[in-house]
Design a protein around this nucleic acid. Structure first.
Length: 538
DNA sequence: CTACTTGGGTAGAGTACACCATAGTGTAC
């Protein structure tokens, strides 16, 4: 975990612990909010060490002192003291969505339950439902959550896994006898969630290579036919496969390819084909081997669906645009949150008109054109978040679901399709609402949704934020067969988030996407044609 | 606890929904 993530977890835990302990609710909220504020910041270490973090809205004297203490000592006395007073294991219960620390306290008082195992047991024995304020459904929800938490243990999202793997690579690259290091396994296959980190090491002297690794890492060794595999001692399963030149290609294939794939295509029979495909294919489940993707960052001209300080972004519009230009983008469509997204400071009609003035002003001085877009909430009944007349103010409309997830599949599907049929809709964003390792997708018939997008000439987003990677790559194949178009958007909330596009590109490449299928690769004139295809906008 | 306003004290994002309980709280976005 990074320093930033450690701090966020620490603030959240402290807040929950205080809530559990019956502390003043505004204090509880302040720490929770502090965690949200940190989430959006870059380079927290500098802000703390230069004592400027307290100037940021939401971080006051108390939280600044808290952060500073952690920065200097690696722990915080108040935190440790409170933790010592609470029952052991209670913190893991705070991760259960649907019950807050207050309810955890209630469960603890009634049943003496203080960890996940005991709570699961209590639910199975039907002891939770009878507690006042709980009930049958809450008990079921708790059980589902425990199941989700257990199954996501030891898993990493793609970006975190790459970060870890890169650190490891960096370490290993100092070892003289190592000639080459490649990602392999799930990382090489670009799985959105990684259960083990695997690297393939090429050396001409396997024995001394292992000896040198031994100086820095603890591991157990497994002897395989074509390589030796070191299993490092690590909370995330980590394997180093070590092999020589003669076996390298085969081991790379065998460790990369998903099991069903290996069974279909064996290395011995298809060596030449596989070697040709090695850098183009991911050897995963239902991959279509016939289509090489030609998608590359350099062809990305349009930057869409990003947020600014007007809603819940961290950077100003011009900061986002300047950074985007420096990363090679030529035109932009800012899409802040719509008015229903209260939690994200969504823009009401009046503020939308103000934003338009800001955009017009920027367009007078900036070389890169900015189009006025919106990320409009899809309300429960499938309508968009402004009346039809007002929608004419927008030049680009991204639609997405941000609330009321827990409805039946039919209702959700109909809701989203109704929004797709709205003539103002251009892009359906993060179509299943999943947050990897944290929130399951809502129930929706994705094929029907894709069909509706094709029928109504609405583009589907591959949200490139590594928390989402939604549309799921498994559905890209179906969507492409139907003739769907795609947008690859990082949903950037800060200048730093702009670079997340790379994860979306990896996912798109995995789906065999061609740049002609991706509207970000449109020239500006093609884009203008696109946004005018249904309603007159410019 | 923070922000704001004031030099110590005050107020504190809204709304819909689920759930349990049959009026009201908790939770999520």
């Amino acid at each position: 975990m990074s320093f930033k993530q450690d701090l966020i977890t620490l603030l959240n835990n402290y807040s929950d612990m205080m809530e559990f302990n019956g502390e003043n609710k505004f204090k509880v909220n302040a720490f929770k909010n502090g965690a949200l504020v940190l989430k959006k910041l870059d380079d927290i270490e500098t802000l703390i060490s230069e004592k400027t973090i307290g100037e940021i809205k939401g971080i006051g004297k108390g939280i600044q002192a808290f952060l500073n203490e952690f920065y200097e000592n690696g722990s915080v006395a108040d935190f440790e003291e409170l933790k010592g007073k609470l029952p052991e294991g209670i913190i893991e219960l705070f991760a259960i969505k649907g019950i807050s620390a207050k309810k955890v306290k209630q469960i603890y008082d009634e049943l003496g339950v203080s960890n996940l195992e005991l709570l699961e047991q209590a639910c199975i024995e039907n002891k939770v439902a009878p507690i006042k304020g709980f009930g049958e459904k809450t008990q079921i929800k708790i059980l589902e959550e425990i199941k989700r938490l257990k199954s996501s243990k030891g898993l990493l999202r793609l970006n975190h896994a790459f970060n870890r793997a890169d650190e490891l690579k960096e370490h290993l690259s100092r070892i003289n006898s190592i000639q080459r290091i490649e990602y392999t396994g799930e990382l090489r296959r670009i799985r959105e969630v990684i259960s083990k980190i695997e690297l393939l090491i090429l050396t001409n002297d396997i024995e001394s290579c292992i000896e040198e690794i031994q100086k820095e890492f603890s591991f157990s060794i497994e002897e395989n036919e074509n390589c030796k595999t070191l299993k490092l001692e690590n909370e995330i399963e980590t394997f180093l496969h070590i092999t020589d030149e003669s076996n390298f290609d085969e081991v790379l294939y065998l460790t990369t390819a998903e099991k069903s794939f290996r069974e279909k295509i064996s290395f011995d029979d298809s060596q030449n084909i596989i070697l040709e495909m090695m850098d183009q294919h991911y050897f995963d489940l239902n991959e279509n081997l016939k289509s090489n993707s030609n998608l590359e960052q350099k062809d990305f001209k349009g930057f869409f669906h990003f947020h600014t300080t007007s809603s819940d972004g961290l950077n100003l519009l011009n900061e986002m645009v300047n950074e985007g230009v420096s990363q090679g983008y030529e035109y932009f469509a800012v899409c802040d949150h719509s008015k229903s997204a209260f939690y994200a400071n969504g823009l009401n009609e009046e503020r939308i008109l103000q934003q338009r003035e800001e955009i017009d002003e920027l367009n007078r001085s900036s070389k890169a054109k900015v189009y006025h877009g919106i990320e409009s909430d899809i309300l429960r009944d499938g309508s968009l978040d402004y009346d039809d007349d007002f929608m004419n103010n927008f030049q680009f409309v991204v639609i997405s679901v941000h609330s009321i997830f827990n409805i039946a599949e039919d209702e959700m599907t109909a809701r989203v399709i109704k929004a797709i049929e709205n003539p103002h809709a251009d892009v359906l964003a993060h179509p299943t609402g999943r947050l990897l390792l944290s929130r399951n997708p809502y129930k929706i018939n994705i094929k029907k949704v894709i069909d509706a997008c094709v029928e109504n000439d609405v583009v589907i987003e591959i949200n490139a934020n590594p928390q989402r990677l939604d549309l799921d790559w498994r559905n890209i194949y179906y969507a492409r067969e139907k003739g769907c178009k795609f947008a690859i958007n990082p949903d950037a909330h800060s200048t730093k988030g702009i670079a997340d596009t790379k994860y979306g590109i990896l996912i798109g490449r995995k789906g065999g996407l061609q740049k002609e299928e991706v509207i970000n690769c449109y020239s500006e004139s093609e884009f203008i044609k696109f946004i005018n295809r249904k309603v007159k906008r410019i």
